[in-house]
Nucleic acid binder design. Structure first.
Lengths: 155, 155
DNA sequence: TAATTAGTTTAAAAATTTATGAACAAAAAA
DNA sequence: TTTTTTGTTCATAAATTTTTAAACTAATTA
């Protein structure tokens, strides 16, 4: 395993900050970052542990989380026990899809709010709320419409 | 201050879960929820404290955060010291705007990743990365294009 | 079969985040 | 001027999250 250049460390940190902002835990976020910037597409458990200076269990847990999130997958070389982990191509899609679902749920909640009697009697409040619902719906629709835009290897 | 119906408590909880998912702290998220579902558009410090059973300092801190985020504003009744807090109409826009900025930053980071030499030599990896960048850019563009879609009271 | 490899699981330590209470401040009222 | 109201600030308590170390498992090798 290459040892990380300063530039790569910087990129991992930047990627990490973004992933953490959307709820991923720090060490898991760094694993995603490493897999993104690494020269090798596939890294072993030990590569990850050494490159990021993490404990075995932190690596193990991060990888299980990422596999559950369908962001990471692994391959095994024939006749070898050790696995090689890599970013699942187009794995970010699943993340986008779950964001979409979340947004739709929130829309529904806001619609319940809008149906509260008192709210309908306050035009300014009602309008602002409707605007927010409309925006979430547009965002949802945009994501859905473009879900098929990028070529996608067979699942 | 009305005491909260079960339905409103439920809505506050649901709104809270969503806001927490995008990084807001729990008590602050509940304040947003309360202001959304409350019959009254404007609530006093004490109303909030009582309705949500929060300490003074938790209310104070939550309100400062929300005011800084431009999600909440306050009015004062003439000749009164106490302030009344309310959701800033279209305040959710500022939140969307800062999300947009974040996304743009992440795009830039991913573009730096894409420019790493090794990556250009692995077509599958490069394609997936480009797909993610394209999607973030589309999302960003959609949000930007529609920023002016909803009527907006004078700032 | 015994030892090694490649991880997983779990209990607890460490770090971080969130909420609270108490002291404080500034304006208004008495 | 003194007291009350309406908050703010800050140190710390409480809760939660994150990381680790150590014990464990299952496959592989010797």
């Amino acid at each position: 395993m290459e040892s990380l250049s300063e530039r790569k460390k910087y990129l991992i940190e930047r990627i990490g900050l973004f992933q953490e902002a959307i709820g991923m835990q720090p060490s898991t976020a760094r694993v995603i970052g490493l897999l993104l910037v690494s020269d090798e597409a596939e890294l072993s458990f030990e590569d990850i542990q050494q490159a990021l200076n993490m404990s075995k269990s932190a690596v193990s847990q991060s990888l299980s989380i990422l596999i559950t999130m369908r962001q990471v997958e692994y391959v095994t070389l024939p006749g070898q026990r050790r696995r090689l982990f890599r970013l699942k191509p187009y794995g970010w899609r699943h993340h986008i899809e779950s964001m979409m679902e979340n947004m739709l749920e929130y829309c529904q909640t806001l619609q319940m709010v809008a149906s509260l009697k008192q709210h309908q009697e306050d035009p300014a409040r009602a309008q602002s709320l409707m605007g927010m619902i409309a925006m979430l719906e547009l965002l949802h629709k945009t994501l859905k419409d473009t879900a098929g835009t990028w070529s996608y290897p067979a699942a």
